[in-house]
Computed example of a mutant assay.
Amino acid sequence: MTLFDLVAPAISFLSVVIILVLIRRQRLGIFHSLWWLFAVFSMLFIGFFPTVVDRIGWFLGVHYPPVLPILLALCFLFVKVLTMDIERTQQEIKIRIIAQKMAAYEAELYSLKAEQSVEKAEIKIHEN
Rank of each mutant, 00 (worst) to 15 (best):
F76S: 13
D54R: 00
V40R: 02
L3H: 08
K94N: 06
L74D: 09
T83N: 12
T2Q: 14
L112V: 01
V53E: 06
T51C: 02
E127Y: 10
D85E: 15
F59T: 07
T83A: 12
T51Q: 05
C75K: 09
I46K: 05
E127V: 07
I125Q: 15
L72D: 07
W58G: 00
V52G: 00
W58V: 00
L22H: 01
F4I: 02
P66M: 00
F49E: 13
F31G: 15
I123R: 13
Q26M: 08
I30R: 15
L3P: 03
T51H: 09
V118G: 02
E127N: 12
Y110E: 06
V17A: 14
D54E: 08
E119S: 09
Q116F: 13
E115M: 10
F45E: 13
F78V: 09
Y64G: 01
K120T: 11
V81T: 15
V62D: 00
T89M: 11
P65K: 07
E87W: 08
F31P: 08
Y64E: 04
L112T: 02
S15K: 05
A114V: 08
G61Y: 01
F76V: 07
V62N: 00
F76K: 04
I97H: 12
L71T: 08
D54L: 00
L68Y: 01
K101F: 10
L34V: 05
F45N: 10
Q116W: 12
I123S: 03
E127M: 08
A114R: 12
